[in-house]
Write a protein that binds this DNA or RNA. Sequence first.
DNA 1: ACAAATATGGAGCGATCGATCCATATTCTG
DNA 2: CAGAATATGGATCGATCGCTCCATATTTGT
Lengths: 204, 204
Amino acid sequence: MARPREFDEAKVLEAAGAVFWAKGFEATSTRDLTECTGLTHSSIYAAFGDKRGIFMRALQHYLDSILLERIVRLETTRSPGQAIVGFFEEIVDRSLADAQHRGCMLVNASLEVTEDNAELQSYVATETSKIEQFFFRCVVAGQEKGEIDSELNAENHARHLLSVLLGLRVLARIRPDKDLLVGLVGPALAALGLTWRARGRGRS
Amino acid sequence: MARPREFDEAKVLEAAGAVFWAKGFEATSTRDLTECTGLTHSSIYAAFGDKRGIFMRALQHYLDSILLERIVRLETTRSPGQAIVGFFEEIVDRSLADAQHRGCMLVNASLEVTEDNAELQSYVATETSKIEQFFFRCVVAGQEKGEIDSELNAENHARHLLSVLLGLRVLARIRPDKDLLVGLVGPALAALGLTWRARGRGRS
DNA sequence: ACAAATATGGAGCGATCGATCCATATTCTG
DNA sequence: CAGAATATGGATCGATCGCTCCATATTTGT
C-alpha cells in the first residue's frame, strides 16, 4: 500500500500520556507532545486527529494497560475480599512510589472535563463505573463466600469504596504522605470486615 | 490620597471564582475575567497582580466564605456526630443542586497543581488538613460524648472521612447522581455508628 | 485651586497556542 | 521500474494567550 508508520503507537501514547498526566490537558502544548514523543506535528495530527484525540487515546491506553489489567488480575487470583485489599494496596504503593505525585490520570482528567466535551465526560463516567462494578462484584462474591457480612448493602459499599479510591488519588497528588494514605484506607476496609494484610498499623 | 476603588472586591472574587471553578485555571483566560467581573485588565492587574494572584484570592475567598463558615456553624450548633452528618448532607445537597456540576473548587484546584506552583500546592494541602482536623475534632468529641465508639482510631477515621469527601466531590463533577452520592456516604457514616437523619435510604 | 496619587479604559506588545499546508522521503502494489 | 499511497519534516497560519503601557478620569491632601 504505502509507507508504514515508523513509530510504536503504544510508546507514543505512553509518552504523551505521561505529560498529560503530569501537566493536565490544557497546560500541555502540542510542542510538549512533539518533544516527548519525538514525532512531528504532522505525524501526530495524521495519526490522532487533534490534541483532544491523542489525549483521549492516551487516557484510554493508560486505563486499559494499568487499571483494567489490575482488576482482571486481582479478580482472577485472589478471594473477593483480598481483591479489594490488594487493589488499595497497589494504589497506595503506586501513589507513594510516584516521585512526581501525579495521582490518577483518570481523576485528573475527570476534573478537567467541561460541558463542551461530552465525549470525555461520558468516557470518564463509564470508566469510574467500571471500577465501581469491580468493587460491587467483589462485595457480592465476598458475601456469598461468607468473607463479607451479608447484611451490608453491596451497592452502597461499592460506591463508598469508589469514593475512597478517588479521594485517595486526590490526596496522593497534594499530600503524598504514607500515614495519610494508608490510614484512610483502614476504616474503608474495616467497614467490610477486612484488614490490611501485613502492614499491621493497629486499629482503624 | 487618591481615587478609591469602584468595585466590590468580594463580588469580583466571587465572579472570577465562579469562572475558575467551572473552567479551571488554565482554561480561564484573562478575557474571561474581564467579562465576568466587568473590570478591565488594568484594574485586575493593579488589584491582584496577575492571573495566578486573582486565582489564589478567589480560591481563598471561596474557602473562607463557604467551607470555613460551614465548619464553624456545624461545630457550634450540632453534636459532634451530627456535625459530620450535616457536613455530608450539605455537600451532597449542594453538589446535586449545582446545574453546572462544578464539584469542589478546592478539589479542582488541587488537581491543577504542578510542581512549579509551590504556593498553591502548600495552600491546598493546608486547607484539606483543616477539613481533616474538623473531622478529627468531631470524632474525638463524639467519642468523649459516647456518640461514637471509643475503640475506633479517630485519626484514621478523620482521614477516611476526608477521602470520602474528596471522592464525593470528584463524582459530583462527573456523575452527579443522587443515588450514587447519597449511597456512598452511608457506609462512611455507618463506620462511625452514624446514619442519615431523615433520608431513610435503608441499610448502608 | 493645585498637585500628588490611584483607578480606569483601551490599544497593543511579544509569545505561544492548536492546527494546517506542502514539498520531500519512503514503501507498497502491479 | 512506475505510480499510488502514506509518513515525515518544517514552515507558517490566524487566533489567542498573559500581560504592559499610557493617556485620561477621579479623588484626596494642602
